[in-house]
């Protein structure tokens, strides 16, 4: 077992453990911290896959922004009514469905011969962040998805403000 495999197995175990703890914790603040741990593990996986820029963006966007909004929402919506069971009454079916889905996916992955392939050499002197930046604004690349994503973010910003704004009095 090489060092890379050891790092991968440790990280995968960390991610899966953190994800499992996240979906089973009753205390949502703890669940949010386990979510942060799982997201951090995913950024380590990105580093193992030679996608360093994505790892940095993962930490910035997911851990730095999304998790913090999650924790804010948990703390803003702490009612005295939600401190009962963390799962709804259909959790047995959810468990069966998730287990079947995992089983089926792993069977499918096992049947595909290409999964045994190893990663080829990659030119480490490439500036992937610069290439991505050019691809996102070039007409031959991804300028339309990029613009649509920016419009979507603007719409989400305005929509979130409209939805979460307190109601006016007398309404």
């Amino acid at each position: 077992m090489t060092a890379m495999q050891g790092v991968f197995l440790f990280t995968a175990g960390l991610i899966l453990w953190a994800a499992f703890m996240m979906v089973t914790r009753q205390n949502l603040v703890h669940a949010a911290f386990y979510l942060i741990l799982a997201l951090f593990g995913v950024s380590i996986i990105f580093v193992l896959l030679d996608a360093g820029f994505l790892a940095v963006v993962q930490v910035l966007v997911y851990i730095g922004a999304i998790s913090i909004i999650m924790i804010f929402a948990v703390m803003l919506t702490r009612g005295d009514v939600i401190e009962e069971a963390p799962v709804n009454k259909n959790y047995g079916w959810a468990l069966v469905l998730a287990a079947l889905f995992a089983f089926g996916l792993i069977i499918l992955i096992g049947q595909w011969p290409a999964v045994a392939s190893l990663a080829g050499e990659i030119d480490t002197s490439r500036d992937l962040a610069a290439e991505l930046g050019v691809a996102l604004v070039s007409p031959e690349g991804f300028v339309i998805p990029f613009e649509v994503a920016s419009v979507l973010l603007l719409a989400a910003l305005v929509g979130a403000l409209m939805v979460a704004r307190p109601q006016k009095k007398g309404k």
Binding site: L16, A19, P86, N88
Partner: peptide, 18 residues
């Protein structure tokens, strides 16, 4: 695949919307 299924279980089974 395993991470996706744990997330799927969380979506289907959890009670709290967050």
């Amino acid at each position: 695949a395993l991470l996706f299924c744990i997330g799927l279980y969380g979506v289907l089974a959890r009670k709290n919307a967050v």
